[in-house]
Nucleic acid binder design. Structure first.
Lengths: 240, 240
DNA sequence: TACTTGATGTGGTCCGACCACATGGCCTAC
DNA sequence: GTAGGCCATGTGGTCGGACCACATCAAGTA
């Protein structure tokens, strides 16, 4: 006798009570990013629950990227509210990839979708493009090893995603990259000629950035899609 | 002296050790969906940690939609591995919306992006379209109240997303809807003429489904985008 | 045969203790 | 008067043990 879209959650467990209290505090604005939660022992007493349950709730919030816990005294101590959606989505996706219920191919496809949309929407004047340009300069120097190059590559792509100005898309992009990072590194090691690939990637990066700066979103989107698709194809994904 | 893309995680906390053990078991295939974790007390003894830490790890996995914990004996008891990515993404997004760091407008925009992509990619023969058609029939009957209609509407849209065959996109779609469900319900109550709106929505649903069945993905995508955008505009979002 | 009852094993909750850590103020030595 | 060391305080982190509610199953009983 329950509506379809309202799940029956049984008797609420204690840590969920704590969770909803904190979520309410956030929604009502009594708790904001940068603010601190009451100390665990205090909160336990206030809510008439055990410290154990409070801690379980905080663990969840921490895993969700909503809170950061620090020991000791001073500015870094206590449990403070942060906002890192990428952390939550990233570890969730990684775990579900581990269960083999999220195919890596679907993640790559989703990444192409989000990233080409972002490229087509990015404003030519977005400040993030500055950052992206600087990253390209860093990638251009000689003697970079593979890991360094890849780290810069990640940041370049994230900067492009940020330039579209949609926080949800940015967070999802970041988490997708994170969830398949290990996998991607593995792919890279199987490339026939890394130097050649790196040169090509750099050229494509420049093309993408130029297209965005010229206001040609459609072209940028096409280039991004080709860029990503080409990389994974060259690395031998999908067609074993 | 740590590479850019490898974060230094300080001394690993005990529950994280449990977490990585379980994640490894999943990755190595020793633990799969439907399988059960060792009992909390057993696992604690195996890993030489306290039951508290084991429980914290399990709490996180539960919040991530990776396991389900059940008391008592029998088939529903114990901690069993499931796979519900939507749960994780949904609560994460909802929490971050609460912190006001994820604008609702960005979520709506992302939903439009994902859903129109799904419509353009859906195969005309996808079995999910059967389901979608049945849902349209149910929505056509007279005397449905608003909540019932909305519940069917959600399922219709999710069915379309599933028809594209990308698990990541499906999960993200579901979580986006979940995270703004309360908000959407609030919007709906402010509609000037619900009956008229419902009639229009039903007509647009039929048009979308027909376009997909005809293999006209581009048209379907355009219709979906207009469908969603029109709804939120009519309800007064964005342009106050 | 049908019912009751207890043993067993599960997660759920709570408590009290101790640890490591970081700060701040007090107290001492110079 | 100042500089240094030291301890009180408060934070999260971990642990072990206890008890509860619940569901099943097997043994005993009517």
């Amino acid at each position: 006798m329950w509506s379809d879209h309202i799940k029956y959650h049984g008797p609420m467990r204690t840590h969920q009570l704590v969770l909803s209290w904190i979520e309410a505090e956030l929604s009502e604005g009594r708790l904001a990013v940068g603010g601190r939660l009451p100390a665990e022992r205090t909160l336990a007493e206030q809510l008439k629950v055990s410290r154990t349950s409070v801690r379980e709730a905080i663990r969840i919030l921490e895993a969700m990227g909503v809170v950061r816990a620090g020991v000791g005294s001073g500015p870094d101590a206590g449990t403070v509210v942060i906002s890192d959606p990428t952390a939550a989505l990233g570890s969730a996706l990684r775990l579900h990839v581990a269960t083999q219920h999220l195919p890596v191919a679907d993640i790559v496809e989703t990444r192409m979708l989000l990233e080409s949309w972002a490229a087509s929407r990015a404003s030519p004047e977005a400040p993030e493009l500055e950052e992206a340009g600087k990253l390209l300069d860093e990638m251009a120097v000689e003697g970079l090893d593979v890991d360094e190059f890849l780290a810069l590559d990640v940041r370049f792509h994230l900067a492009l995603a940020d330039a579209a100005g949609n926080a949800v898309v940015s967070a999802m992009m970041g988490s997708l990259r994170e969830s398949i990072q290990r996998y991607a590194a593995q792919l890279t090691s199987s490339l026939p000629d890394w130097e050649a690939t790196a040169t090509r990637l750099k050229a494509e990066h420049c093309g993408i950035l130029a297209a965005i700066r010229n206001g040609d979103g459609d072209r940028a989107a096409r280039l991004v899609a080709a860029h990503i698709e080409g990389y994974y194809r060259e690395a031998g994904m999908g067609r074993p």
